[in-house]
């Protein structure tokens, strides 16, 4: 367990510099490269220890591509990704495996990201099976149950399968699994978007508590500006693969400079529009 950093400008957990990701367009028969679609062009940001950085944008803005590039699911076309001071941009599968011990991901659809044929206990223990030497086998069951308890699941249900849980509970399983290796950074790609609002609030509170407890950093990706506003310390607003505005969450939401950010904020539905002053 680490304390939140007190000193100024601690070295970042994640440093992304001039990241560019382009997907090739290939011809239909010969699969020749005939062009490319630039999903992300020149994106630069840091995530400090214990910090939550929000990536917000509409579909096609490149926010998920950034997440996939950071964790090594797609290759960066240019630029660099540093994790804890190491340049991981060109890492191979074996090296990436070691990196992913400290960097985990939680996806939007918890059901699709859980193995339907594994019990919750096995689901969580798989992390220790893959990353050998992290935890002796004899402790797997106890530790899995402790993690379940920590994310608000009844540890007596450790022998149940994913389909026996509700959507919110499944997302808690995914979070427990992401925590199993005590990572430094968790990437949440639309992690609460599929949840009902009352359950979503529970999971947001859980993520905040876990951050305090474990000193986690979050790279939090969402299309939902109110979720981003609630959870993030800093925000990057993306449009068509580029960062159009970046800053502290309060500043961006109170005083957006960029025209696109303003349009985005203006479109967010207001729960009680009659309370807004007519401007």
């Amino acid at each position: 367990m680490t304390d939140r950093p007190a000193g100024p400008a601690p070295s970042p957990v994640l440093r992304v510099q001039h990241l560019r990701v382009a997907y090739p367009i290939r011809s239909s028969v010969m699969l020749r490269r005939v062009g490319e679609i630039v999903a992300v062009s020149d994106v630069t940001f840091d995530v400090g220890p214990g910090e939550t950085v929000g990536l917000v944008g509409e579909s096609g803005s490149g926010k998920s591509t950034i997440a996939r590039a950071v964790i090594g699911l797609v290759a960066a076309t240019a630029g660099s990704i540093e994790f804890e001071g190491r340049d991981i941009t060109r890492y191979g599968p074996q090296q990436l495996k070691a990196v992913r011990r400290d960097m985990q991901m939680v996806f939007q659809d918890p059901y699709a990201s859980l193995n339907p044929r594994l019990t919750v206990r096995d689901q969580i223990a798989e992390c220790w099976r893959v990353h050998r030497g992290q935890l002796p086998r004899a402790h797997w069951t106890d530790e899995a149950k402790q993690l379940m308890e920590r994310v608000g699941l009844n540890p007596d249900y450790s022998d149940r399968y994913p389909h026996q849980f509700s959507g919110g509970q499944r997302q808690r399983i995914c979070i427990a699994r992401a925590l199993a290796l005590r990572p430094k950074l968790i990437i949440c790609d639309e992690a609460v978007s599929a949840l009902d609002v009352s359950v979503q609030a529970q999971v947001l509170n859980l993520l905040a508590d876990l951050q305090d407890e474990f000193g986690l950093s979050y790279l939090f990706i969402s299309h939902d500006l109110s979720v981003i506003e609630h959870l993030s310390d800093r925000v990057l607003v993306l449009n068509k693969g580029e960062v159009v505005e970046e800053g502290a969450v309060r500043q961006i939401f109170a005083d957006p400079r960029d025209a696109y950010t303003r349009a985005l904020l203006a479109a967010v539905p207001v729960v009680r529009p009659w309370l807004e002053s007519p401007t």
Binding site: G168, D196, S198, V199, A201, S226, H230
Partner: peptide, 20 residues
């Protein structure tokens, strides 16, 4: 009360306990 935007930034949300 569960809606993030109706809560002040950084404050905890007050979710409904339990599930549907």
């Amino acid at each position: 009360e569960s809606i993030p935007s109706t809560t002040v930034i950084g404050e905890r949300l007050t979710p409904i306990p339990g599930g549907p």
